[in-house]
Amino acid sequence: MTPAISLHHIHKTFGSVQAVNDVSFSIEPGTLLVLLGASGCGKTTTLRLIAGLETPDSGEISINGVTVSSRERFVQPEDRRLGMVFQDYALFPHLTAAANIEFALNGAPVRERQARSQEMLALVGLESMGNRYPHQLSGGEQQRIALARALAASPGVVLLDEPFSNLDAALRKEMREEVRRILRQTGMTAVFVTHDQEEALSLGDQIAVMRGGKLQQIGAPQDVYLRPVNREVAAFLGEANFVQGIASGGQVECALGRLPLWVPRNGPVEVLVRPEQIKLEASTSQPANAPCIEHIRYFGHDQIVTLALPGGESLDCRTWARLDLKVGTPVKLDVHGPVIAYGK
C-alpha cells in the first residue's frame, strides 16, 4: 500500500537554527498521526513542510505516492490537495461560515458547493449556523467551521496545527472527541501537531515524538508511553520515576526489588517506573527498612504518594483516593508488569 505521507531525510534550517534535522517517517492511509514535542522542537515546521508553506533544504516528501517536494520539483501548496486547520483558525472574517466552507470548493457548480457545505455543516453539528459570520461564533464553533472547511474538498490529507490551543480546558476535551469522531467518520489521513501529551495519547493512532528538530520515536500511543526509546521521551510523556539499578539479561535489580525487563540489558541502568505501575499496601514492618510515605498530593479522583525508599531515592506512586495511607507510615509495594531500563 502506498503510504499517505512519507518524509525522507528532511532538513530545514532557519538561519543558524536547525529546525528539522534528518526526519524520516511514513504513515498508512487513514492514520491519525500526532506530532508531539515541546515548543521549538520542529513539529510545526514539519507540518508546514508537508503543507508546502516551507521549502525543505534537502530531503523528499511525498503525499499519496506523489513526490511534492524534492531537489527537482516543488508542488505549490495550492496544488497539493490538502486541508489545513490553523492555530488561529484563519477563517475569513468577511465571509459567512457557509461561504468559508464553499471557498474550499473552488470550481464546483454553485448547487454542488451549497449542498456540500450544508453536508459539512451537518457533519460538525452546526447546520443552523451557516449564515453566521466568524465573529458571531464561539471559539468552539469557529473551530468546527475551520475543520469543516479543511475537510470540505475531500483532501488527501488534513493537517491540524495545534487547533485546540485557543480553547479552554473543558471545551478542549469536548473538541478532542468531536475531531476524533469526524476524522474517523471520514476515514481521512490526518497529521495533528500538539505539545499536550495527554491530547496526543488520547487522539493519535500513531505518535511521533520530536525533540530538538529530531524525530525521537514513532509508534502507537501504548508503545511510546510504555516503551519510550530514551529517558527524554519517557520524561516528556507523562510522569516518570527513574530508579538506579543493575541489569543482567532480562532482569534488573533495584530498590524496588528484582523486576523483569521488556528489553534485556546488562550493567548499571536507570529504570523507568510509571507512578500508576506501583501498587501500595500498608505494611507492618519497621519504618527503618521499609519505604515510608513522605508526602501526599491529593486530587480527589486519585492521589500521588511520594515514598522515601530505604536507599535514599524517592518514588511517586499514583493510587486511588483511599484514606488508609498517612504521612510517615511504612508501606509494602508491588510493581506491575515489565519495566524498561536505560543505560547510563
Binding site: 503543507a51 501548496p77 496544488d79
Partner: peptide, 15 residues
C-alpha cells in the same frame, strides 16, 4: 487584518 494564516489557508484550499 489579513493575517498570514488566512493567505496560507486560501492557498491550501487551492486558490
Amino acid at each position: 487584518k489579513v493575517k498570514p494564516s488566512m493567505e496560507q489557508a486560501a492557498r491550501i484550499m487551492g486558490a
